[in-house]
Simulated assay, not measured.
Amino acid sequence: MTDKDDAPFTTVRQPANLRSGLADTLMAQIESGDLKPGQRLPTEQAIMAATGVSRTIVREALATLRAKGLITTHQGLGAFVTDDPTPRSFSIIPNDLKSIDEVLRVLELRMGVEYEAAGLAAMRRTQEDIDRMQDRLDALDRALEKGGYGAQEDYAFHRSILVATQNSYYGRLFDTFGNIMVPRQWARLDKMTAAERKRHAARMRREHHAIFTAIRDGNEPAARRAIRTHLLKSAARFEELRGSSLS
């Protein structure tokens, strides 16, 4: 490999959030043309030397780029920028959500999408939609009562809201999140006392029931308020986690 091949990495500082920071740096260099279609990336060792991050971090960043269709790897040859590195679809993959900051960014995005979707669902929901939402809500209640995370049930309930908009694009967009929209490792239920877990479950049930009731009753303003309140409170809880991790 030539010195020119390593040039894009000679001025890269160690990112604050190592996993997503290195991936973002590489993506920016691809999008700007510093790393051109078909160009071979520096070796893992060269990237480690330039950035000061570990081999594990480098490999996770490269895995993120592969998942986004920006690079391909060839055994014995290394990693190459794809011939057409423009991402063809939006996606959120687990490696994107390795920090509370990234989770908060996803919550911001969800708020914009779900605020409008809740209002549309309140105006357009059918009895079939109401029954589906009730079924998903009951499943979430059961998961929370058992002391579980309820991640899959939570995702299914929120997705049923988007289905109720009668606009299939909402559901297709939400499918990019999957049930990683709130990574389980950040819930920290294992660190809660029994009383804290009980309060957490009650709060989650209360917020989701408020959303369902507003949509079921066709109350558009209340549906928008309820989903916004729920997501704002979720963001506030993650802000608290971030604060405690920094203290």
Rank of each mutant, 00 (worst) to 15 (best):
K36S: 06
S160D: 06
D129Y: 09
R142L: 14
E44S: 04
P37A: 03
Y169N: 12
Q29G: 04
D129H: 15
A235C: 06
F177V: 00
R59C: 08
I93G: 07
E207D: 14
I180G: 02
T165I: 07
S89N: 05
Q75Y: 09
I130L: 14
L162S: 07
P87R: 04
T11C: 00
A202S: 08
V12A: 09
R124F: 09
T176R: 15
R184P: 00
Q14P: 01
S99Y: 11
S54R: 05
R105W: 06
A164S: 12
A7F: 09
L65T: 08
S99R: 08
A222T: 02
I47R: 01
G76R: 03
S244A: 15
M1K: 05
L144Q: 04
E44G: 02
S245G: 01
S89T: 11
L120N: 03
A50Q: 10
R188L: 12
D83V: 07
R55I: 13
F174E: 07
Q127A: 07
T86G: 02
P37M: 06
N179E: 13
G112Y: 05
Q14M: 14
Q134N: 13
D190F: 01
P8M: 02
R136W: 01
D96I: 03
L140H: 05
E31C: 03
I161H: 01
P8N: 05
R59W: 09
A7L: 14
V182A: 00
D3F: 09
A46S: 15
Q29A: 13
K4H: 00
R224T: 02
